[in-house]
Simulated scan of single mutants.
Amino acid sequence: MRIIAHPVLCNYYVTYRCNAKCGFCDIWERPSPYVNLADLTSNLKDLKRLGVKVIDFTGGEPLLHADIHNFLALAKKMGFITTLTTNGLLYPKKAKQLKGLIDMLHFSLDSSDKDTHDQSRGVACFDFVMESIRIALRQRERPDILFTVFEENVHEIKHIYENICLPNNLVLILNPVFDYNEVQTGEKLSEDTLRTLQQWGKKKLVYLNEAFIALRQSGGNHVVDPVCKAASSTIVISPENELVLPCYHLGKKVFPINQDLYKLYQTPAVKNLVALEGRLPECEGCTINCYMQPSFAVEMNKFWWKALPSTLKYNYMKGTWKSLFK
């Protein structure tokens, strides 16, 4: 049963450019412009009309954009919940500009070992993450540690949790890895690993969306009865100022926005493609977290119930729970 008919999240790609070369991502290989303020301002107004509550300023590396602090300030002024994930390379330089503008600030960290983390990211960024944590805490920010879980790094959760998260009162977000397009991210997470993650998810200061586990255990999205509501729960905007459908990872079609996102979203061409969400051949078995999470939020089913406790836990820990009911 659909309980929220409108989109709730915007994945706003401010640039596809990135200063890292992660082996489990291909976005850094794409040429890209940068979003401009005029387009962003127009789009934020329309996103508000469409019912979106959360703006995820993403990339690439979003801190590469010289105006990212202005974008965040505008979104906050308009009442959006703001999120941003960074590899930490530029945060120390931009921390003062960003102070107080990001409701959910995530620092990516996938290993407690400097060399292992830097190798997976393709650049030396471990030390920058550690410095970013120190600076953020001095500024009374409370960043999350976003840990992408692979079969080979599950054992490292304990060290990061006990030595970084607990002492600093930081939330540890466990993000199970997923494959997409031609990007192979390694060995599929085993049942033992999924059970281990479930146990971690019960601990203080750990966020794991329980529905991510349930979805993987049931074989992912199924086109005959899709759980994916990517196109109707999430609006994806590219650096070229295009609406991307049904999601970034498939990117079957792009529509130039031309300063009227609200009108574009109502057109038959867009609505017809939205209706195919989760039903395309490529959607079979999909477990892409960034689209499944909002999908779980808009339709009441077994995954909604699985996601609810962890969602409430995270928003309580972050102090953003009141915004869910506005």
Rank of each mutant, 00 (worst) to 15 (best):
A38S: 07
P31T: 15
S42P: 00
R17Y: 00
G23Q: 07
T41N: 02
V8H: 04
V14W: 08
K21R: 14
V14I: 13
D26E: 08
C18S: 08
S32L: 03
E29A: 15
C25P: 03
W28F: 15
A38W: 03
I27G: 01
P31N: 15
C10Y: 05
P7K: 01
P7N: 03
Y34W: 05
E29T: 15
N11H: 09
P33Q: 08
P7W: 04
S42G: 15
V14P: 04
F24N: 09
Y16R: 15
K21P: 00
R30P: 00
N11C: 08
L37H: 09
I27K: 05
T41R: 03
T15R: 11
H6Q: 03
G23S: 13
C22S: 09
C22F: 13
C22Q: 06
C10E: 01
A38G: 00
N19Y: 13
L40S: 01
L9D: 03
T15Q: 10
L9M: 08
G23N: 12
W28H: 13
R30S: 07
V35R: 10
D26S: 15
K21H: 13
C22T: 09
V35W: 03
P31I: 11
Y13H: 14
H6M: 02
F24L: 05
E29D: 06
E29N: 14
N36D: 10
Y16V: 07
L37R: 05
S32H: 05
S42R: 02
D39H: 08
L37A: 04
Y13T: 13
R30N: 12
V35S: 10
G23F: 12
S32V: 09
Y34E: 11
P7I: 03
G23M: 11
L9Q: 10
V14D: 00
T41Q: 02
W28T: 07
W28M: 05
C22H: 05
S42Y: 02
D39L: 07
T15D: 02
T41G: 02
S42C: 07
Y16G: 04
H6S: 01
C18R: 10
G23C: 10
L37N: 01
T41H: 02
L37Q: 06
C10Q: 01
I27M: 10
C10S: 13
V8L: 12
L40A: 04
T15F: 07
F24K: 02
V8N: 02
H6I: 02
S42M: 03
Y34K: 12
C10I: 07
N36G: 03
R17E: 00
C25R: 12
V8Q: 05
H6V: 02
Y34H: 13
S32G: 05
P33R: 14
C18V: 11
P33H: 09
T41W: 01
R17S: 12
S42N: 07
P33F: 14
L9V: 15
N11S: 14
T15I: 08
Y12M: 08
D26L: 11
F24I: 12
T15V: 11
